[in-house]
Every structure is written in structure tokens, then in C-alpha cells.
Simulated scan of single mutants.
Amino acid sequence: MNSRAITPFPRLIAGISIANFGYIVGAIVPIALLLTMKLAMLDPENVTKNF
């Protein structure tokens, strides 16, 4: 008999990690794109350096 209970913690940690990655991507990508567009409007020659 196996008296040890199987816990869902590995799946929980994986789910939280994937959700956190999705949240970060969903928040950072639009900010980075909008910042790049704004920098391109302000100083078109030095967008990469300013970013």
C-alpha cells in the first residue's frame, strides 16, 4: 500500500509560472512598443541609443 498522498503542487507551480510569464509578456511588450514609437517621434536618428 502506498500511504503517501499525491499532491498537485508540481502542477500548481508550473501553472503559476506560466501565468506569471504570460502576465509579464502581456504587460512589458506593449510598453516597450509604445516607448519605441514615442522615441521614434521625438528623436528618429537615435531611437536605439535612447531606448
Rank of each mutant, 00 (worst) to 15 (best):
I18M: 13
F51K: 01
N46H: 15
A40H: 13
T48E: 05
V47M: 03
F9M: 08
I13R: 03
A40N: 14
P8H: 05
P8Q: 01
T7L: 08
Y23L: 12
I18E: 00
I28W: 14
I18K: 12
A5I: 10
I16K: 09
I16Q: 00
Y23K: 07
L12W: 02
K38F: 14
N46M: 04
R4Q: 07
N20S: 00
I6Y: 07
K49A: 10
I31G: 08
G26T: 04
I13Y: 12
T7A: 07
F21C: 15
K38V: 10
L42Y: 11
S3A: 01
F51R: 07
F21P: 00
D43H: 08
N2R: 00
M37A: 03
I18L: 15
I16M: 11
A32C: 10
A14D: 02
I6L: 04
A5F: 13
I16T: 03
P30G: 08
V47E: 00
N2Y: 11
I31K: 06
K38S: 15
L34A: 11
P30V: 03
G22A: 13
N2I: 03
S17I: 06
V29L: 15
K49P: 00
V29I: 15
Y23N: 00
M1T: 09
G26N: 04
R4E: 09
M37Y: 14
L39M: 09
S3N: 05
L39P: 10
Y23R: 06
N46C: 06
A40V: 05
L33C: 07
L35M: 13
V29M: 12
L33M: 08
I24S: 01
K38H: 14
V47R: 01
F21K: 13
A5W: 14
P8N: 11
Y23T: 08
R4F: 14
I18P: 01
G22V: 03
V29N: 11
R4K: 10
M41W: 12
R4T: 11
Y23V: 12
L12S: 01
L42S: 10
G22F: 06
P10N: 06
F9W: 11
A5N: 03
S17D: 01
K38G: 11
Y23H: 05
I13S: 04
L42W: 08
L33G: 11
